[in-house]
Design a binder for these strands. Structure first.
Lengths: 202, 202
DNA sequence: TGCTAATATATGCGTACGCATATATTAGTA
DNA sequence: TACTAATATATGCGTACGCATATATTAGCA
């Protein structure tokens, strides 16, 4: 339940409504955890029933009432213990590698076209995340704790590094496919000498 | 529905039972798409009702009947069109970056400990995937199409490259935290000159 | 005048998934 | 003797999620 803890993390900064949370999560963590509006409200209800947050309802004349949530002591202790615990990673889900895995069943041109679109998509996401670095930099309060800023920036750095690594890999892979490297693949060598695998390292 | 298409991909190689599929998927694609036994049977039912596969029931004396599924023409055309189409990537879900994002709320030591465990976990997965490269190499039939083998190996290569990139990033990041790089962070420079961001590039 | 965006919360519906368990039998091991 | 693994399929239960929609009002724009 990572979303629950992302919400706790934000409410530990300051009390907020579901509407506020939706916006702040969208601009700050969308490169490693995105969500939907409905999911935010549902998760708020759930963690309220667990006693991790509590709300204060503020009536408004011309708008729905604002339900301002704040973190409780139980919530703070849950949050802290979650942050400092190593959690088993989610099982990897990379659907486009299924396409690569079965690419032998289609033409080289077809899979090249898919990878080129993937490449364009990755470049676009890299641009977006680099822009978000500049945006968040421009929005820092003067009194923002540099240590907080450092950790926020680390997640952007990870996004950029990871995206760039994917872009590089696909670039190299496209070259291999276009040069028909599989024609040079030596199956016997692949099987025979595990110590010399680098020669066939695709 | 990527699992449906992974199943179609395998059934396009040869007819199989759900039990067989569970095993072959576990050893071949677990580094980019893992699943559970129950999910395989449910997905088989679903794609059968869509007409993508059909089954032949073979009675056995002392075991449950084998339901051998084979791909239909409709299934083949669905599979091919899926493989050659660019699909919008799933929204990224990287829970441990939520921990990094809110690490300012705990001690450096606490987050360092989490990242060190993450590092150990990544190294373990890298070892496992490198071993699987050797294993699959040793299991190739002599008559395996080198082009198929090439694409299979690409997915392993991606896994290794990506894992190594993550390992490297966490290594660099641990150094930054331990050297308290955030003390040198210049907020004003970060805000002022977008062209010189590299100076503060964490 | 009519549309859209912003403010604010809430629910219904369907999908995909994992975990646990049920059923049934044989073969091998402690 | 009692367990575990292997063979083989199937279902119940709960979770997390996204998409669409509902409700209600104001402000701004075309």
């Amino acid at each position: 339940m990572s979303l629950a803890h992302a919400i706790l993390g934000w409410l530990n900064v300051e009390p907020m409504t579901g509407y506020d949370l939706n916006q702040v999560i969208e601009i700050s963590t969308q490169h490693f955890w995105s969500t939907s509006q409905s999911q935010i409200y549902r998760t708020l209800s759930k963690i309220e029933s667990r006693g991790w947050v509590a709300k204060e309802v503020i009536m408004q004349a011309d708008r729905p009432p604002r339900k301002v949530y704040h973190i409780t002591e139980a919530g703070q202790s849950e949050l802290e213990s979650w942050i400092v615990t190593f959690h088993k990673p989610l099982p990897p889900r990379i659907p486009w590698l299924i396409q690569v895995f079965f690419a032998g069943q289609v033409s080289d041109e077809a899979i090249v076209s898919v990878l080129e679109k993937k490449l364009a998509n990755l470049r676009q996401r890299l641009q977006k995340i680099s822009a978000s670095r500049a945006i968040s930099a421009s929005q820092f309060d003067e009194d923002e704790d540099p240590r907080d800023v450092f950790y926020w920036m680390l997640t952007i750095d990870y996004g950029e590094t990871n995206l760039q690594a994917q872009i590089d890999w696909i670039g190299r892979t496209l070259e291999k496919i276009k040069s028909r490297e599989y024609e040079k693949l030596n199956l016997a060598a692949l099987k025979g000498s595990p110590g010399e695998q680098d020669k066939n390292h695709v």
